[in-house]
Design a protein around this nucleic acid. Structure first.
Length: 268
DNA sequence: CTTGGGACCTGGCTGC
DNA sequence: TGCAGCCAGGTCCCAA
């Protein structure tokens, strides 16, 4: 599942291949991926444009184009971006051809991934909260944003308007690392707990970027190789396993229709 | 405004 | 072996 570390890895690995390249052809195999634009309009507006840069905001990939428009891609749960050469995939939803014979494929088993073309990227990403790895995201910002939030802390962490980029896996990992129960009311955390969680969020994300993301399901890097961050997971997706600290069975509950994994003894 | 539930999707896995 | 049902979860939409 691409969360911040996975999307950041994809960005880093697409940058040298695509920046400065011009799109010469695009093929959309599933019209849903560019909705509400028609395939024809999307193609017309994107062909001939040079990719000026690749940025990331939360889990969105942002491609400023030479005509002033912006291409935005969100991979949702199962999407992947692959550079040639690649094996054919029955889940190919779109392909871009560039002026140096490079091709970029959007693969998506579950048809949730989406592409937008817009003159103003803010129209798409305006809802996002702060980037957790920037200087701006200080402990003070984090603690003040928690005030008055009565929902379970896990639900707040995966709210993209609260922090951008933290998804289900890394929320579970950060809460385990900070020894906080996922169902704790967000505004009930002590100062010490808030500090631990703040630190844990940044460390968990940074470490996962260092490991090129977590290949737990369909996540794959643009060159076809896998990330290794999931080898460090302590609770996320560890069904049937045991807490690495105390040996208790990892517990799974459903929160917001998301699988939530935690240690019932270490996390209070 | 916040909160919480369901919808959108599809394929792999589990258990009867 | 067959198959129903669970599980995976990012974001939008809607109701309270």
């Amino acid at each position: 599942m691409p969360e911040l570390p996975e999307v950041e890895t994809i960005r880093n690995e697409l940058l040298p291949a695509l920046v400065g390249r011009t799109i010469t052809q695009v093929t959309i195999f599933d019209a849903k991926v560019v909705h509400p634009l028609s395939v024809e309009e999307f193609s017309r507006r994107v062909i001939g444009q040079r990719i000026e840069d690749i940025r990331r905001r939360g889990k969105y990939l942002i491609f400023p184009l030479s005509n002033g428009e912006t291409l935005i891609i969100h991979l949702k749960m199962a999407g992947a971006l692959l550079l040639t050469p690649q094996q054919p995939s029955r889940y190919l939803r779109a392909s871009f051809q560039f002026d140096n014979d490079t091709q970029l494929f959007l693969i998506d088993r579950r048809r949730f991934a989406k592409m937008w073309l817009t003159k103003n990227a803010e129209d798409i990403i305006y809802k996002l909260g702060p980037e957790p790895l920037t200087q701006d995201f200080s402990y003070k910002v984090f603690s003040s944003r928690l005030k008055g939030r009565k929902a379970p802390i896990k639900a707040v962490l995966i709210d993209q308007g609260f922090i951008a980029g933290v998804g289900n896996m890394y929320a579970d990992e950060a809460l385990f690392s900070a020894k906080i129960h996922p169902l704790r009311r967000a505004d009930s955390l002590s100062k010490e707990e808030t500090k631990r969680l703040y630190k844990a969020i940044r460390e968990v994300l940074q470490s996962a970027i260092g490991n090129k993301g977590a290949s737990v399901d369909t996540y794959i890097r643009p060159n076809g190789s896998l990330g290794t961050a999931h080898f460090n997971f302590q609770v996320a997706h560890q069904r049937g396993k045991f807490c690495p600290i105390c040996g208790s069975p990892i517990q799974r509950i459903s929160l917001r229709n998301r699988g939530t994994y935690f240690c019932p003894k270490c996390q209070v």
